[in-house]
């Protein structure tokens, strides 16, 4: 099974568009594909595929709750919390600020009195959809307000790989969020080839460099996908392709037809672009 990613650093360069177009191309070649929407803060692949998401599975995380009867107000939990999510005033039981808590467990693991309970809370949802005999979609959704989304990405990716194995998929395409931080890194783990989707502008070039630096550190071979290739300044991206020694593998022209297909959820049928 091949594991590919569609990423790019900058938002709106066409990561999801490429992921869907590429999935469609692989299907035409007779392959069985699982598309994995790891942009859990703003997942959109289901909209591009024009499908209704149905069966969902909750994603949980543990958060700490102080057991006032057992707590001796020693303050150790506050000292070990590196998110500064626990406020402790000498002689008083600590107060937990849930907005800052990532649920890492440092507090309950270090409490000498077992006075911190773990409380399971829903932080997101996972949807598995069968789009056709050859295409499945796994989408992760973070609950709005949840700040730490890396673990939700991880859960989405792991579930997707399990499904891919179960149905005997040939290819998994991971669609990442923009940026280059923890939620993108979690999505890229184990990927065999990353497609860096960019556009021929200084913004596209700047952010492509950032993601290529990350991919280099992660030792993931990469290819550039130049979207909206017929507008802007393509030499900017050609320069990066040379600088990072990464091939410009795919070009997608700027096309109103493609924009219409995007808007109306008809990308799967847009077979003349890849």
């Amino acid at each position: 099974m091949q594991l590919y990613a569609s990423t790019g650093g900058k938002g709106g360069t066409g990561k999801s568009t490429f992921a869907v177009l590429y999935a469609a191309k692989l299907m035409r070649e007779g392959k069985k594909v699982v598309l994995c929407d790891c942009d859990v803060e703003c997942p959109n692949d289901h909209i591009l595929l024009n499908i209704k998401l149905s069966e969902n599975k909750p994603i949980y995380r543990n958060f700490p709750v102080i057991d006032r009867e057992k707590c001796v107000s020693c303050g150790i939990c506050s000292k070990v919390c590196r998110e500064n999510a626990i406020l402790w005033v000498k002689g008083r039981p600590p107060i937990i600020f849930k907005d800052k808590c990532t649920g890492c467990g440092a507090c309950w693991l270090s409490c000498p009195y077992q006075a911190i309970d773990k409380q399971k809370e829903k932080v997101g949802e996972l949807y598995e959809s069968k789009v056709s005999d050859r295409l499945y979609l796994v989408s992760g959704f973070s609950n709005p307000g949840v700040s730490e989304t890396g673990p939700i990405v991880r859960e989405t990716r792991v579930s997707c790989l399990k499904l891919a194995e179960k149905i005997g998929a040939d290819v998994v395409i991971i669609d990442t969020s923009p940026g280059a931080h923890c939620n993108v890194i979690q999505a890229l783990i184990g990927v065999k080839t990353a497609y860096v989707v960019t556009e021929p502008t200084p913004l596209g070039a700047h952010d492509a460099k950032l993601i290529l630096s990350l991919l280099r550190k992660m030792k993931i071979p990469s290819k550039i996908v130049l979207n909206k290739a017929t507008i802007g300044e393509r030499s900017l991206i050609e320069k990066i392709s040379k600088e990072y020694n990464v091939p410009m593998a795919v070009e997608i022209p700027y096309s109103e037809e493609l924009i219409r297909a995007y808007i109306h959820g008809q990308l799967l049928e847009a077979d003349n672009f890849l």
């Binding site: 070990v80 649920g103 890492c104 440092a106 673990p151 979690q186 783990i189 550190k217």
Partner: peptide, 28 residues
């Protein structure tokens, strides 16, 4: 909590790209 520790040939190591420095490994 985030799968930042890997195992290779029976040895454990930290993947610095994933580690967020929560300190749980040090505590346990």
């Amino acid at each position: 909590p985030i799968g930042a520790i890997g195992r290779k040939n029976g040895k454990y190591y930290v993947n610095p790209l994933v580690c967020e420095g929560c300190g749980v490994c040090q505590i346990v």
